[in-house]
């Protein structure tokens, strides 16, 4: 039988204060700003790391974070949730191909911002899609993430062969025209993406919580990033996207993310309601 001493509301309040102090320490020491993230999910990830690390309190872990950069990098990796895959939600990529690509084909040049690109799987997915549609040579993909470590991995484009088997299935369901294996070279138990796919990708670190507008974009993809933010930060980020998009530009969110609670619904028309593809209205309703 496990220990069952009660955890009262005061204890929860103490933990909340400790979490705020930890996030403040991270911001002041390392410049990463998690202070406006969804409390529920940031707490789960901090408690998970606390349980693994053996520290007796969040305060004790905060001290370690301040003094040990390597421990901070471990925690950073927990906090940024780098779970992704190629052609994640294949139906989304199929809809993008069918509903967005025909419009992009009428543009002389296409600028795409992928905010929160993590380890890059979805960046290469988009590059391949554009290549197959004959659009890649007039496209530029701006791949950004808060975490420089995952950006370095994204730049390398090396993935495990196990994972890539699953991606092949996604690729077909996403409407891929060839075989995914045409776009990588297998080496032992990993694959490296075709280096030519990188020719029109710019990798840059960008923090949606603190950094500013990014170019005059035709498409912004930000999928399963907003779910980690609190409502105020979501509002900030959506405003940032409105300001970064060209008139008629597309915004693609994760399938559970909505504009409903951000006060910015008016700025967009819904292109595909279930796969969360929006288009910035030509005329702003004010």
């Amino acid at each position: 039988m496990a220990d069952s001493f009660p955890i009262d509301d005061d204890e929860i309040d103490v933990e909340d204060i400790e979490i705020r102090l930890l996030l403040e320490a991270i911001f002041q020491m390392y410049g990463y700003d998690f202070r406006s993230y969804s409390k529920a999910s940031i707490r789960r990830r901090i408690m998970h790391r606390l349980g693994m690390s053996g520290f007796s309190s969040i305060m004790e872990m905060t001290d370690k974070v301040l003094r040990d950069r390597r421990f901070f990098v471990t925690l950073l990796n927990d906090l940024t949730v780098n779970v992704t895959e190629m052609y994640r939600d294949p139906e989304f990529y199929r809809a993008f191909r069918e509903e967005v690509i025909p419009v992009l084909k009428t543009f002389p040049f296409i600028k795409i911002w992928h905010a929160g690109c993590s380890t890059g799987e979805e960046i290469y997915s988009m590059a391949i899609l554009l290549e197959e549609e004959g659009l890649y040579d007039r496209a530029m993909i701006y791949a950004t993430d808060i975490d420089k470590n995952v950006l370095a991995a994204a730049k390398k484009g090396i993935y495990s062969i196990e994972a890539v088997k699953q991606y092949g299935d996604n690729y077909r369901r996403a409407g891929g025209r060839h075989s995914l294996s045409d776009y990588f070279t297998a080496r032992y138990d990993s694959v490296i993406m075709d280096q030519r796919l990188k020719r029109n990708i710019v990798f840059a670190d960008h923090d949606l919580a603190t950094d500013q507008v990014f170019g005059e974009m035709h498409v912004i993809l930000c999928r399963n990033v907003l779910i980690y933010f609190d409502r105020a930060l979501q509002e900030r980020v959506i405003r940032l996207f409105v300001d970064s998009l060209d008139m008629g530009g597309y915004l693609c969110l994760g399938t559970k993310e909505s504009l409903k609670f951000t006060g910015q619904e008016e700025a967009f028309e819904m292109i595909n309601p279930s796969l969360r593809i929006f288009r910035k209205r030509q005329i702003r309703h004010s």
Binding site: S38, A40, S41, R44, V83, I227, K256
Partner: peptide, 21 residues
């Protein structure tokens, strides 16, 4: 809870999601 997402309760009694491990 939808397939593929963790469903959580946030402090202000709203739903939060995560695609963590």
């Amino acid at each position: 809870a939808p397939p593929g997402y963790h469903m959580l309760v946030d402090q202000d009694e709203t739903i939060a999601f995560s695609v963590g491990k």
